[in-house]
Design a protein around this nucleic acid. Sequence first.
DNA 1: CTGGGGATGGGGCCC
DNA 2: AGGGCCCCATCCCCA
Length: 456
Amino acid sequence: MSPGEDGLIGIPFPEHSNELLSRLNAQRRTGLLCDLTLTSRGARYPTHRSVMAAVSLYFRRLFGAEEGEEGEEGVGHSCSVCQLDCVSPDALAALLEFAYTATLTIRSSGMREVLKGAQLLGIQCVADACRDILGETETGEDPAEEAERPPSRRKQDRCSVARAVSPVRPVWRSPTAPDTPESGLLPAQGPPGLLLNGGSHWPQEFTHRPEDTPSEEEESAAQGQATPQLGQSQGDGAGGGATAGNGRKRKSQMPQQCPVCQKIIHGAGKLPRHMRTHTGEKPFQCSACGVRFTRNDKLKIHMRKHTGERPYPCPSCPARFLHSYDLKNHLSLHSGDRPFECPLCHKAFAREDHLQRHRKGHSCLELRTRRPRRPAGPHPPGAFVQILEGHGVPVPLLPGARVPYPELLWRSVAEPAGKAPEKPEGGSSPHRSASVTHRAWDEDEEKQDAAGEEEE
DNA sequence: CTGGGGATGGGGCCC
DNA sequence: AGGGCCCCATCCCCA
């Protein structure tokens, strides 16, 4: 195609932020490029000013990185060590870990210290998470501002203005004045809580994730709320009628938001289970081999290895399985069913994940020049986007391969209106997705046909 | 590259 | 409300 002058093309790299953070964390661990050392009661933590300023309102103020303060000479320019004895070493370590990994890993017993540290440093989402877990509510909430918050952006609630007023002042040391702790290096108005007076621009800014790109979780949450009747389709049509037919009728009540990742967890009592994915806690230990699990139902299945129990026998052969879904997969072998067809090369798979793998890899390089007019099999939504994603961007089309409306493809990538590939809309049961996806497919097909006819 | 088994995490139903 | 149990989707690993 001729990119020419018809506008900008935005190619998203979803992994970039993770990789960036990961590399920054590696730099922190090795001390590379660290220009700030935090200390607490003798413990020293090398870190990066820019990261701390990005995650902490306190440091942002301190370094003059707050919006509109660029002109000022932030105190941080002359400081390389920040003594934070008011925050316990463990809490400080946890907060730093959070800053560089977006995951807070702490013991329950240390929660209060972390909360205190998060309040002091103006790391509001952590403070909120700790408060949630501790069952506390933030004091001094301004009902007026609360009412102003758009209800659809709950995530921002986590980033509300820090109002915690702390009497504790961190102590600064500078290489030039190592022994003059409070030598005017503190922000004029002290700790972050004191600095703030309800500045309304701050909640938007203070977040750990890009604001404009809806997260997976948000999307799924939004989807769940917008179309609850679709969300229950999980057991409806999973290939071959594996379900007993009674179906799962409705979302369970009480969806809860994870204070760490903001994901909406559905089902009463499921949040603690989810939280263990963040904390890494594995309270369920196998008495036979000592392997630990985050969930007791997983331990129970694990125990089948020791007992030799394989409760899912294949009716057609002697095979027995540990899991019901293994049997389900296995049964498709007997039936010969291959309901998952690659829309590019039409190769069929018995398992959806195998199709996904096939499409993600480079195994499917054969682009059809013309699709069947009304495909019999299911076709995932955003198939064209996946053409691009499957082969990297930009697309190294095979010689002779023809893609009508290439700009359409680019636009699909640049403006992923429906977050195409990760999770096929409305689940992935082939029968269900067929009805959902045919529309998108047909639209594309019409355009494609039109283009094709033009060429002909 | 594909087939197959296993692991992990989320959701629904039930108690 | 919390937890047990089950099913599901997805990912990883190995042959």
